[in-house]
Design a protein around this nucleic acid. Structure first.
Lengths: 188, 188
DNA sequence: CGTCTATTTGAATGTACTCAAAAGCGGTGG
DNA sequence: CCACCGCTTTTGAGTACATTCAAATAGACG
C-alpha cells in the first residue's frame, strides 16, 4: 500500500508507520461477504492479495456488479462509507484475499494528523470519478459487444479469473446473452 | 459560491476574497460552446445563473448527455481537466448563464495557499462519485421508464426547462422512444 | 462420485431503436 | 406583427438487440 501512496504523495517513514497503524490486516476466504446491503460501510478495503467485488441486488434478485478490486485497489460502498448511512452494495470476496481495513474514524484521524493524506484520497476519488464517468458514457454509447471489447482490453488479466456471469453483469448484459455474444465473436 | 463553500469548510473573509480572486466571472449566451471534444479543459465552471450541460458525440454523431449544471453546481470535463489532456466532452450553455471560471493553475495555487480547499474539492468529488455510481447502477438495473421516474423525482424543476431530447439522452434512450414512453405514462 | 452452480443453446418475447413523415413550436428577419 | 425556417416532438411501421424461460451440458468442489 505504501507504494500506492507514494505514487501520489510522499510520506516520511514515521508518517508511513502512522498510516499503517491506522489500518488493520485481515485475511478472507473466497465467498466471504464483507458488507451487505442495508448495513453501514464502516471500513474501506485495500486489497493486497486476491480479488473482491461489489454489487447490488435488484428487486428481482439479479446481481449487478459495481466494481472489482484487485491487488493495489481500494473498494467500499462509497455512498454508505461517506454518509455513514445504510447502503445498497454487497462486498464479497471473489478469491482468497489479504485486505487492509481503514475505518471511517481512522480515515478522519488521518486527514487531521497527516494533512497530506487528504490530497492522496482526493486524487484516488478523482480517478474513480473519471473511470466511472467513462463507464457510464460507454454504457450509453456502445453496444454490448463494444463494451465487452473495451473491458477485455482494459482488464486483459481479469477476464481469465472471473466467472463469465460477473463480467456479463459488469458490462450490463445477461449471462445467456454474454455466452452467445462470445460464441459469435469466436466465429470471426 | 461562497455559500456553497461554507457548507463544507469555513474560510476567513480574507480567504474567501482570495478564493474569489482566483476565479473569473463571465456571462454566456445560450448555445455558446465553452469546450469542445479534443480540446484541453483548462477551467472548471461554477454556475451562478442559467444552465450548462456536458455531453459526448458518439461515432454516429449522436449526443449523450453526461451532466447538467444549474446554479450552485460545478461542471467540467473531469478527465481532461485533471489530466490536462484532450478530452471527449463538449460543454455548452443551455440557458444564458453567469459562470465563475477557475483555471487548473489557480486550483493548484488554491490547494497550496489555502490547504482547506483541498478538503472542499475532495468532498465535491466524493459527492459526484456517489451520484455517478448511483446513476450507473440505475442504468444497469432499471428500465427506461423507471429511470425517467427517478430523474423526474430527483430534478423536478429541471424537467420543465430542458428539451425532451436532452432528458432522453441523459436517461439513455432515443428522443422518439422517450416521446412514446411519456405518452404511455400519461394514459395511466 | 454426487451435487450445485456456471455455461451453453434454442425458441419465443419484449424493449428500445431506426427510418420516415407529419405536426408543433420558437425565433428571426422582413 | 406575421411568415418562414429550422429544430423539436409526435406517430407509425418495421427491425434489432437483448431478455426470458427452459433444458441440456459442462465444471467445480466437497
Amino acid at each position: 500500500m505504501l507504494q500506492s501512496i507514494a505514487r501520489h504523495i510522499s510520506l516520511s517513514p514515521e508518517e508511513q508507520q502512522q498510516f499503517l497503524a491506522f489500518t488493520e490486516t485481515k485475511n478472507y476466504k473466497a465467498k466471504t461477504i464483507l458488507l451487505k446491503a442495508g448495513e453501514i460501510c464502516t471500513h474501506s478495503f485495500f486489497v493486497t492479495k486476491g480479488i473482491l467485488r461489489s454489487y447490488t441486488l435488484d428487486e428481482n434478485g439479479v446481481e449487478h456488479v459495481m466494481s472489482f478490486a484487485c491487488p493495489g485497489w481500494w473498494i467500499a460502498d462509497m455512498y454508505s462509507y461517506l454518509s455513514q448511512r445504510p447502503g445498497h452494495l454487497y462486498i464479497e470476496v471473489n478469491e482468497d484475499a489479504d485486505v487492509l481495513l481503514l475505518s471511517k474514524e481512522n480515515q478522519e484521524r488521518l486527514y487531521h494528523d497527516i494533512i497530506k493524506t487528504e490530497r492522496f484520497f482526493r486524487i484516488l476519488v478523482e480517478n474513480s470519478l473519471v473511470a466511472n464517468q467513462q463507464r457510464l458514457m460507454d454504457n450509453l454509447s456502445f453496444t454490448a459487444e463494444a463494451r465487452y471489447d473495451k473491458f477485455s482490453k482494459k482488464y486483459p488479466d481479469l477476464i481469465h479469473c472471473l466467472p463469465q456471469k460477473q463480467i456479463a453483469s459488469y458490462i450490463g448484459v445477461t449471462p445467456e446473452f454474454f455466452s452467445k455474444m462470445k460464441a459469435k465473436l469466436l466465429k470471426k
